[in-house]
Design a binder for these strands. Structure first.
Length: 620
DNA sequence: CCCCCCCC
């Protein structure tokens, strides 16, 4: 009976044998017989990234875990994340220790990653060294009888923590220079900085090079810089450096940034190398420094810019999990709206670990201080916070935060009305209709038709789509020519991707039945014009028809028409995404809420807002 | 030496 758990260290004997193979072959092949001899290989899929090589080869860059170590693999097959798989034959690439061409059988799917595995250090593997395994397991025994071929004479300190060699107490006596003064001509330096963010470990593998890396963001009184450690240094610095602690750093390469990738203000970045030395400074007074931008000024900043902001939380959405393209697992997301004394608010979205951390800390009317939020064009203008972001709720030692808190407490009763938001507020439960009107986003269908005719939507590529608000009802869901309704696609209930087969999902191998999702063209109509629009996915369809697609399409066409007539005689307030794709303008209905007529009536300048000027303003 | 940074 096979256990369904990964076997710690199970790939190590194979990697060692491959490494010590003296033949001229680039790879060592392990047959089922070899596996009987060297021990079963049962591992967990940590992650897979789909890659393609023209003309038509698809493969998956994969990280395997044995619960203690991570291994890089190239696989032709995709498994659900956290699957436990048994490998019956495979190859090991000799220079880097990659697992290739594995023949595998999926045993089951785990809920999460088992253990806290770290990337295997292939260079340091050696049949003489003690295995990192504290409890020797039967299958590791054959390792000891492997030929001890290589003479390796520089392992005099292989029992010590290798990162200890990086610590240099002498740095305590060095002169320290500000981070802001580092330049690409700097050859010798010592900085004292707080590690404000760290990781995660990333691995890469391509034709020219491969390895692992980790990035850190270092901050001192008036500057910040990104530092990256590769391979051996990645493992050492990952262990050595802790977020929130202050260190002195010397040695390493200072090079100009590529502004495409590094959005910090510093013109340079650091690479930690073999020469880099560090010293923990327990009593340092170096703190994270902030350079706050007013929220109203963010409208002028281009997407990607990283900034510091301080704001009062005026709206907070529950943590949610969303499916993101190219990512197999759902990602936690938490969205706030923050306001500062420029009387402007903006939506701030926290992702992944940042969302989980924030969730427990945040409540309305708290002041939040954010270091390194990234400007985005999502919903017009918004901010994203991820692994590199540092934030503090209700800090006591930041004057800007205390001042803002006082401003808010003094003025909160009067500022409600005057707030303008830089972000479209889809899904936000704000009471203020005025703030949405100030975004000038409500148009009529006639405006859409008119602007389309004038070619004014031609620049709205799918990435740069325009979002508008309309009030409309749905006048028709059937084709005018043949009365047919094709309104759904089948999606995988687990990974949500489109499914073409009933039996299982090609993307994640899930075997549950597919779920219908709305993908429906319809005629939208308001008081004086109509247009064709599409809805996609469950949320909006559910809002419009009052039920899930599975339920709707289980009904007869007569019943569907009844539902349509009943539901759709009501006016909805919709967000429409306008995008241009290969010459066609598409309208996608993104959100739909029953129209709040009372709120509409309160919009005194409604007539003005719906005029054609609105769209022209938006587009200019 | 990497290069993802997200959703409607």
């Amino acid at each position: 009976m096979t256990s369904n758990l990964p076997i710690a260290g199970c790939l190590i004997p194979y990697l060692i044998q491959a490494k010590e193979d003296t033949s001229a072959n680039a790879k060592v092949i392990f047959s089922p017989d070899d596996i009987n001899r060297l021990g079963s290989v049962i591992v967990q899929i940590k992650q897979q990234k789909e890659k393609s090589q023209p003309p038509n080869t698809k493969y998956f860059e994969t990280i395997l875990s044995d619960s203690k170590h991570l291994y890089q693999a190239v696989m032709m097959q995709q498994f659900p994340t956290f699957s436990i798989i048994k490998i019956s034959q495979f190859q090991v690439q000799k220079s880097k220790g990659y697992i290739l061409n594995a023949t595998c059988e999926q045993l089951n799917v785990g809920q999460s990653l088992i253990g806290s595995p770290v990337l295997i250090n292939f260079e340091a593997l050696d049949s003489k060294a003690k295995q990192p395994q504290p409890t020797p397991q039967p299958h590791t025994k054959p390792v000891l009888s492997l030929p001890k071929s290589q003479s390796n004479n520089n392992n005099n300190n292989n029992r010590q923590d290798p990162s200890a060699a990086l610590v240099d107490p002498g740095l305590a006596n060095r002169d320290v220079m500000p981070i802001s003064q580092l330049s690409s001509s700097t050859t010798d330096f010592c900085i004292e900085a707080i590690v404000r963010s760290k990781g995660p470990v990333r691995t890469w593998s391509k034709a020219t090079s491969s390895g692992s890396l980790m990035s850190f963001e270092l901050s001192d009184a008036n500057g910040e810089i990104k530092a990256t450690a590769f391979n051996e240094q990645q493992r050492q610095f990952e262990n050595l450096l802790e977020v929130g602690k202050v260190y002195r750093f010397s040695g390493g390469h200072v090079k100009p940034i590529d502004p495409k990738f590094n959005k910090l203000a510093h013109p340079c970045e650091l690479s930690f190398g073999t020469q880099t030395r560090v010293l923990l400074m327990e009593n340092s007074n170096v703190k994270i420094s902030y350079e706050f931008r007013r929220i109203s000024d963010i409208s002028e900043l281009t997407a990607g810019t990283k900034i510091d902001v301080v704001g009062v939380i005026i709206d907070s959405q529950d943590i949610a999990s969303v499916n993101i393209k190219n990512r197999s697992e759902p990602t936690p997301k938490k969205t706030l709206s923050i306001l500062d004394d420029s009387n402007t608010s903006i939506t701030v979205t926290f992702w992944g670990r940042a969302a989980q951390k924030l969730h427990s800390e945040t409540k309305k009317n708290d002041v939040i201080v954010i270091k390194s939020a990234q400007v985005s064009d999502f919903n017009q203008k918004s901010l994203n916070c991820g692994d590199g972001t540092v934030f503090e709720v209700e800090p006591t030692d930041i004057p800007e935060a205390s001042n803002l808190k006082m401003w808010y407490e003094k003025n909160s009763s009067v500022i409600e009305q005057g707030v303008s938001s830089l972000s479209l507020q889809s899904g936000m439960k704000t009471g203020s209709t005025l703030s949405t009107i100030s975004n000038l986003r409500r148009v009529t269908i006639n405006d859409l038709v008119d602007q389309k005719q004038k070619g004014n939507f031609a620049n709205q590529t799918p990435q740069k789509a325009l979002f508008l608000k309309i009030n409309c009802y749905i006048s028709r869901i059937r084709s005018t020519s043949n009365d047919k309704l094709v309104g759904y696609y089948n999606s995988c209930s687990k990974c949500k991707k489109s499914r073409t087969t009933e039996e299982y999902c090609e993307h994640c191998q899930d075997h549950q039945l597919p779920v219908k999702q709305y993908k429906m063209f319809m005629r939208i109509q308001d008081q004086d014009d109509s247009a064709s629009a599409e809805i996609l996915g469950e949320t909006v369809g559910h809002k419009l028809f009052g039920m899930k697609a599975d339920e709707f399409f289980a009904k007869s066409s007569a019943e569907q028409d009844d539902i349509t007539a009943e539901q759709l005689s009501r006016m909805f307030t919709c967000t429409v995404k306008v995008s241009e794709y290969s010459g066609n303008i598409r309208y996608n209905i993104i959100t739909a809420e029953p129209t709040d007529y009372a709120a509409l009536a309160r919009e005194e300048d409604y007539e003005l807002v719906v005029s054609r000027l609105v769209v022209q303003n938006l587009l200019s």
